[in-house]
Amino acid sequence: MSMDRRQFLKIAGISSLLGLGATAASATHNIWVKGINPPEVEPNPVTLKAEHWAMVVDMSKFKTEEDIQKSVSACHTTHNVPDFGNIKDEIKWIWKAKYENAFPDQENPYMEEKIKEMPFIVLCNHCENPPCVRVCPTKATFKRKQDGIVMMDMHRCIGCRFCMAACPYGARSFNFREPRPFIKNENKEYPTRTRGVVEKCTFCTERLAVGKLPACVEAAPKGGLIFGDLADKHSEVRKIVETRYTIRRKAELGTGPSVYYLIGGNEHA
C-alpha cells in the first residue's frame, strides 16, 4: 500500500490523539498517578496553624552564652545535627553570632559596649521573599503556602549549594561528609541527613504538626524566644513587633526576614 504524505500525517495525528485519550482514561483508574488529595489526607487535628510563622528574639533574656547554648543544643539534638568538631564541615541550624556579624549593616564604631558584646542567637529567617527558594533548581527548598515556612525536601536536594550562595544569612550548611557517625545521640523519631545535601532550620515543622512549639523556643530561658503568627493581630509576636522597636537582619536586602530582634526588652516584654 502506498501512502502519500497527507494521508500519513492524518493517520499519525488520529492515532496519537487516540493514544492520548487512552492514557487519560487509564489515569483516572489509578488515583495514585496524580498523588493523594484530601480527603485521603488530613492535617493532624492538634497541628498548630498560622498564616505566617515568625519569631521574636528577646535579647534581654539571652545574657550569657549558656542561655543560647540551651536552645542550640535542644535544636541540634532534636534534629540529629552532626558535630564534626571542626568549623569547616560545621552543620548548624541555630547558632551564636556577634552583633557585627549578625547586623553588619548596623555597625557603628562608638556603639554601646554591651550590645557589641552580646551573643546573638541566629537561625534561618524564613524570609517572605527567600532568595534560596528562587535559586533552587529542583524545588527542594520551597516556601510553604500555608504557613510561610521555608522548608527543605531532603529527597529532592541534589547538593548544588546554590541556596547556600544565595542565602545572605549563612543559615544553610552542606553535608560534606557522611553525618551519621558524628551524631552523638540519635533522635529515633527524626531522620538524619545524608552526605551531599544542604540543611537548615525548618521552624520545627514536625513539632508544629503534633502541636508542639519549636524545640529552641521550648528550651529558651524565660521565654526568650517568642513564636507565633505574625498575620494574627492578637498574637504575642505581632503585639511586640507593633509596640516595641525591633530590628531584623539585613532587612534592606528585601528578603523580608521573619525573625525579629528585640534589643531593649525588659523583664515584662
Binding site: 495514585w32 498523588g35 485521603e40 488530613e42 492535617p43 510553604r144 522548608m151 525536601d153 515543622t205 503534633v210
Partner: peptide
C-alpha cells in the same frame, strides 16, 4: 505493588503540603 508510590505521596503530603494524617 504500590507501597513506593504511597510513600512518595506521603512524603509530598507531609513535607510540602503540611498534612499529617492519612485516611
Amino acid at each position: 505493588t504500590e507501597h513506593m508510590q504511597l510513600l512518595n505521596n506521603w512524603r509530598d503530603a507531609v513535607v510540602r503540603d503540611g498534612y499529617g494524617q492519612y485516611v
